[in-house]
């Protein structure tokens, strides 16, 4: 078992009322899973991914990651777990505009205090693998959307995470670019990376090994274990 959610609640208070973003949510993900989360806009997909990615808090429930209780972690511990085990891919890429492709990919390693020579080797491998060696000195603004998302994925993978979270990774891409990214995900999954993606598209969801549907912060069907 890679991770497990038990009865997760997340809410915000608006005008004195609780608005539930996540409600009574359970989830179990095994090592090597490729899970697609579907649901209409505003159903809570992003919120769930942020909770899973330890980027956001939840109000009630338990979250175990590799058997460790994330709900009991302090900020520092959470940040450490996050940077060691989780990679995140965003719909809007979220590359740092002031850094080159090479530097963007390298950044997570800086936070993991990887030595300079090792960093060089890792980034070079990644550039090579994604076929963007020729672009390594360009800035994000000089790339197409598909290329930017490639860099985003490369950056998410550079720290060799156990879990890759992708929030509508192809939402801003055309269909050819989407396919490339999805095929890449499949490849990564085959190599052992656990992936959870949120998506609107049936086609993309089909790349995963299973699909769950979210509506108003709850599963529409009970998730199988």
């Amino acid at each position: 078992m890679l991770l497990e959610l038990n009865n997760i609640f997340k809410w915000v208070t608006q005008g004195g009322n609780r608005v539930f973003l996540l409600k009574h949510l359970d989830l179990a993900v095994e090592q090597g899973d490729f899970l697609s989360v579907m649901g209409p806009s505003g159903s809570g997909k992003s919120t769930l991914l942020h909770v899973l990615g330890m980027l956001d808090d939840f109000n009630e429930g338990e979250y175990y990651f590799q058997g460790e209780p994330v709900h009991g972690f302090r900020d520092k511990q959470r940040a450490r777990f996050q940077k060691e085990h989780i990679g995140f891919v965003f719909q809007a890429y979220h590359l740092i505009d002031e850094l080159t492709v090479y530097e963007n990919i390298e950044t997570p390693l800086l936070y993991q205090k990887v030595s300079s020579s090792e960093r060089k080797a890792l980034v070079a491998d990644m550039l090579d693998r994604f076929g963007i060696v020729g672009k390594k000195d360009l800035f994000p603004a000089q790339l197409s959307g598909g290329q930017q998302q490639l860099v985003g994925v490369a950056r998410a993978l550079i720290g060799k995470p156990r879990l890759l979270l992708a929030d509508e990774p192809t939402g801003n891409l055309n269909s050819r670019q989407s396919r490339e990214i999805m095929e890449l995900f499949q490849e990564l999954n085959a190599e052992g990376t656990t992936i959870i993606q949120a998506t609107h598209s049936e086609t993309n969801a089909a790349y995963g090994s299973r699909t769950l549907h979210l509506l108003d912060g709850s599963w529409t069907s009970t998730p199988e274990p």
Binding site: G53, L55, A79, H94, D97, P108, Y111, Q112, R155
Partner: peptide
Amino acid sequence: REVGIRKTLGSE
């Protein structure tokens, strides 16, 4: 935005 990204990348 940069701060947000860095945090998701594991910056303390």
